[in-house]
Every structure is written in structure tokens, then in C-alpha cells.
Amino acid sequence: MNSSIVISQSDGRPMYLQIMEQIKQKVAVGEWAPGEEIPSIRMMSVALRVSVITVKRAYLELEREGVIFTQHGKGSIVAKDPGLGPRLYDQEFEEHMEQVVRIGSLLGLSEQQIAFRLTETAIRLNEAQQNDAVSSDEDLAKETL
């Protein structure tokens, strides 16, 4: 049934994170629909051959993130509005930021310097966009002339 979740022992991440990620994907692609009942912690633990405590932790964190909802004595369901789209982007954003900071400090940049470079990049991208807009306005003006 639900053993379509695969735990990899060569994946460096803790098992609970692997379970969380794969449940989120199931929800994101709609395999597990909002409001749908999902396997109990013990059922999931048997299916995945991992300890109850690991599955419990994955479920707790998923609940904290609003992906699933657990009713006492009734089991868990997928949240009515798991809102995974924006949240997955948010997570990706966070990961990229961490990468920027890590590489920045490898280059010997201070926190302020990293922040400054980031602002600079934002301004540069913004200007480039505006220039594009302006130049297309100019093109338009030329054409009309």
C-alpha cells in the first residue's frame, strides 16, 4: 500500500527527513488528497520497517508545518489546505540563501559584505529589468515615429 516511500541508507539525511520529504511530494502531486486519511504512525512504521519514534517525529514535524493534521484517537489526515506550493519555494529559497552565505564565507566575506553583495545583485537585476522596459518603450517610440 504505502510502502511506495523509500528510505535510503546511503542518503546522508536522517530517516525522518526522508519520510517527510516523500510525504510532502505525495501531497504536492495530489496522490494524497487534502482531507484524506493517511496511515497511522504504527502502520507506517511496519510498512517502512523503521521505528515508531522516527515516523512519529516525521508526522509531528509535518503537522507543525501544516501539511497534515492529527486528531487524537482518530489518526492523521492531509490538511485541507496544505499550501505546499509557496512553502516548497520558501524552503528552496532558504537552501539557496544558506548556500550563498556558505560560499561567501569561503571567499572570506563578512556578514555585512555578503548582505551588501546581495543588495547589489538585487539592485542590478532590478535596473536591468527597468532598462529592458525603458528600451522597449524607446523601441516603441521609434517605431511610432
Binding site: R42, S45, V46, L48, R49, V50, S51, V52
Partner: peptide
């Protein structure tokens, strides 16, 4: 291992 985790289905 599968059999051991299955035992724990009974709490």
C-alpha cells in the same frame, strides 16, 4: 527486521 517491526504494530 520486517518481522520485528511488524510485532510492534501491537502497542
Amino acid at each position: 527486521l520486517a518481522e520485528l517491526t511488524a510485532v510492534l504494530a501491537d502497542e
